[in-house]
């Protein structure tokens, strides 16, 4: 085996390393290019075409930005966007605050207790949406559901409510279930972040007579700020992509009150076969999320040094 000479000039070394590095990365980059980058490009291109079942691939016509113009005049799409925004506005703060509260309550407990609670809150994520939905569907069931039973036993309602079929309640049911399946990851992250808080600062503050609340706001909160931002953004991204709950529980109904962008995209692509139109929706969604992610990365890189 030839040993690499100790004094190789740095360019030759880097050239050698370049070859080796790309050989190492070849498998991953192949899959990445073929199944992420290529479809992304195809998605943007197809969004400029009119493609329907009646118009097979060969008859695909270029229509420029018409899909996008149609999109912003499509009342169903705008309604779906509004619903998605409602989901984001309610879910993101709720998930962030709740997970912060749970984490600060458990992060100083004994290791066993802490990981017990962490597992408990992660359980709905691992169980899987489809399995969890079966139970929630039963709870919200208008005739044999436990929610109506309990509420009427307590005398709060006098006739059964069709929770998932009522325009007033359906979206709140979705939000509740979404909440339980979204808090797992933020709690894990917050527990780790709070564990990394500089303990000497906390003790110094306590010696100076700071209350727990002051310690939290003045010392811990700024130090977990990067984590908070990360959590806000991933929860926002996940909420924008909310699909399976809708598909399994309400199919966008009643009267479109739980239709989300992702579900509308799905129906357009796979029930109506309007691929071009569906892709233009995907592009709009991607742009919104890209902007949010860019904001996060910018703020985070500013904040991360302490």
């Amino acid at each position: 085996m030839a040993k690499t000479p100790a004094r190789l000039n740095s360019h030759a070394l880097k050239r050698h390393e370049t070859v080796v590095a790309y050989l190492f990365m070849l498998p991953a980059l192949f899959f990445f290019a073929a199944f992420v980058i290529l479809p992304m490009v195809m998605g943007v291109v197809t969004s400029l075409f009119n493609y329907t079942m009646k118009n097979p691939v060969s008859a695909e016509t270029f229509i420029g930005l018409k899909n996008y113009i149609d999109l912003f005049q499509d009342k169903t799409f705008l309604r779906a966007m509004l619903n998605t925004l409602i989901l984001v506005v309610v879910t993101v703060p709720a998930v962030t605050l709740f997970s912060l509260w749970v984490s600060s309550a458990i992060y100083q407990m004994k290791e066993g207790v802490r990981s017990f609670f962490r597992c408990v809150f992660y359980l709905p994520v691992v169980t899987g949406t489809v399995a969890v939905v079966v139970v929630w569907k039963w709870m919200f069931d208008g005739y044999s559901g436990i929610l109506n039973y309990v509420l009427s036993a307590l005398g709060l309602i006098d006739k059964n409510i069709m929770w998932l079929g009522d325009t007033r309640f359906a979206i709140w049911c979705i939000i509740l279930i979404m909440f339980t399946t979204y808090v797992g990851q933020p709690i894990v992250l917050y527990v780790a972040a709070l564990g990394n808080v500089d303990q000497s600062l906390v003790e110094a503050a306590q010696v100076d007579g700071a209350t727990d609340l002051q310690v939290f706001w003045k010392i811990k909160w700024p130090q977990v700020m990067p984590t908070t931002l990360y959590i806000v953004v991933i929860t926002t991204i996940n909420t924008f992509q909310c699909f399976s709950l809708i598909q399994l529980l309400t199919s966008g109904g009643p009267e479109g009150t739980t239709n989300t962008v992702m579900y509308y995209l799905y129906t357009n692509a796979f029930s109506l076969y309007k691929y071009g139109y569906a892709n233009s929706m995907g592009v709009v969604l991607a742009i919104i999320i890209a902007i949010l992610s860019a904001i996060q990365f910018k703020v985070m890189s500013k904040d991360v040094s302490y």
Partner: peptide, 30 residues
Amino acid sequence: KRFYGQSIVFGLIICAMALPKQVVLVPLVR
């Protein structure tokens, strides 16, 4: 490794991670 194009490759990976996975799925099915 220190190699040519490192920042481009890494940047692409980070960008792709920040984008929603489900957006690429419609073209992927086709």
